[in-house]
Amino acid sequence: MIHPIFGNRSRLTVWWLIWFFVGLSQSQILFFAANCSLTASLIDGSLSALFYGIIAMAIWFPVIQLSSGEAKTGRFILNHLILSVISVAIWLFGVKWITMSLLQDYSLYEDCWTDSFYYRLGAGLFIYALVILTYYLFINIEKINRKNIKEANLERMLKETELMLLRSQINPHFLFNSLNSISSLTITNPEKAREMVIKLSDFMRYALSQKEDRIVPLKTELENMKLYLEIEKTRFGEKLVLEESIEEATLEAKVPNMILQPLYENAIKHGVYESVEKVVIVIKINMHGNGLIIRIINDFNPENVPVRGTGTGLQNVRRRIDLFYNKEAYLTTKKENSKFIAELYIPLTG
């Protein structure tokens, strides 16, 4: 920790200003109350202030040393008793010795010094206590500040990490099944295999992108979801039917990247995976107030008892939009007849 006074010009000015007044009061007290000569009072006062100013500044180093350990109360008091006695003694006798060596006739001053001894001792100890208190106050404020900064950093890092983790949760089934489809297509239709490799690569690049700006125009998100859905269509063929109805004005709106993928994945999982019939997945996007509403609707068979999923897909979306938009966004799901509807509201941002 840097010296709180010495390392700061304006504090240093205030510091010496305070000591100037301390010195001035000391001179006045000596002159009016202790019957010192004017010269002796002035010299003693100035020296006292200068001397104590330096000593008080030096006290910082033992104080910081003492405050860093976990001292017991008794130990703490003892340490400061010793430190205060040494500091005050140096000050008392230092000032006396220098003042005496500056004055031609110091017998009078010696009397005046003896008369004011108890006052000096009291003032010295009092100032010591004030200085120590100030230092401890400073140390604690500094500690709290550091802790706050550390906590803020930690929180930010956690948030970043969490967002990154939430974003990159692509179902490994999707990846390996797609690769298996490609493996099959190399035999029956190499052209299509190559096409699918490219689509898969483009999609993975988007999904795994580690760029800072993870907020993308809706247009970009939709283009990449198209890649994802085309890959799924290769796997499931005619079984998967896609429809869309997207309001033109929404295309430039900003959304977190890969926010739609878990919704589609959920629709495919509960629609297509569980069905032997055709499954229609519809996406509808509209402006709504100060944001946009995205609905993904899929057919499902309400009589099916579903295999329980882990439920992480939709939870991740909720967590992500919470982190991004501080609860201003929402995701709701509902079942109507044989339709499952996921509704996502995202507020518009710059």
Binding site: N177, S184, I187, T188, R235, F236, G237, V276
Partner: peptide, 28 residues
């Protein structure tokens, strides 16, 4: 096997075996 390309692949891998007879394919 529910994915068509995956079924195609298995059939292709099996095509070299004369003693194997694929009696059916199911998608669910």
């Amino acid at each position: 096997e529910d994915e068509e390309p995956a079924r195609v692949l298995i059939k292709h891998y099996l095509s070299g075996y004369s003693e194997i007879e694929v009696v059916g394919e199911c998608a669910d």
